[in-house]
């Protein structure tokens, strides 16, 4: 029984990783999703939040990391990997903490995750490009990250209710 459960979870995990990659790829393919640098919906965040609530923190972290690494290997380069990774790590860390705190709904957790993803990437750009000028872009990134995270978090919340196991 325990073995069956483990296999089911593993299958769900694999499915979520591939879904996250497909969503990232769709976003990458369609320029409409990226109106300005750093602004995009982050559709894969739906999957990460879903995994965070349904599979637990360790597997959700693995979904997020695998998505970032596989996307970089398939379509990106070392620099793209550093940007995505810094965004994903900060975003996931904060979402995990907020989820644990238990005072926010998935929408709020998503909004915080979206903002932190952008902050992480901006910090990475500040270090890599050695320019402070990017700070002017922060307000735009804060708002767009919140909006994007709110949407993905809300969608994840709805999915969590509708999909039982």
């Amino acid at each position: 029984m325990k073995k069956r459960l483990a296999a089911g979870r593993l299958a769900a995990f694999g499915l979520l990783v591939s879904l996250a990659i497909v969503l990232s790829y769709v976003e990458y393919l369609i320029p409409f999703f990226q109106p300005a640098p750093g602004i995009k919906p982050g559709l894969a965040n739906v999957v990460v939040i879903f995994a965070l609530y349904r599979l637990g923190s360790a597997q959700a972290a693995a979904v997020s990391l695998l998505r970032v690494i596989l996307m970089a290997v398939l379509f990106g380069n070392a620099f793209a990997l550093m940007y995505s990774l810094s965004g994903a790590v900060l975003s996931f860390g904060v979402m995990l903490l907020l989820k644990r705190a238990g005072v926010f709904s998935p929408a709020g957790v998503g909004a915080a995750g979206g903002v932190c993803h952008n902050i992480g990437q901006l910090l990475c750009a500040l270090v890599l490009l050695e320019t402070g000028g990017l700070i002017y872009y922060l307000p735009v990134l804060l708002l767009s990250g919140t909006a994007a995270g709110l949407v993905t978090g809300t969608v994840a919340g709805v999915l969590l209710k509708r999909i039982q196991n």
Partner: peptide, 16 residues
């Protein structure tokens, strides 16, 4: 939780 979400979003908006 909804209310907390709103507060969080308002704080981010204020910071921005």
């Amino acid at each position: 939780k909804r209310r907390n979400d709103m507060i969080l979003i308002a704080l981010i908006g204020f910071a921005a």
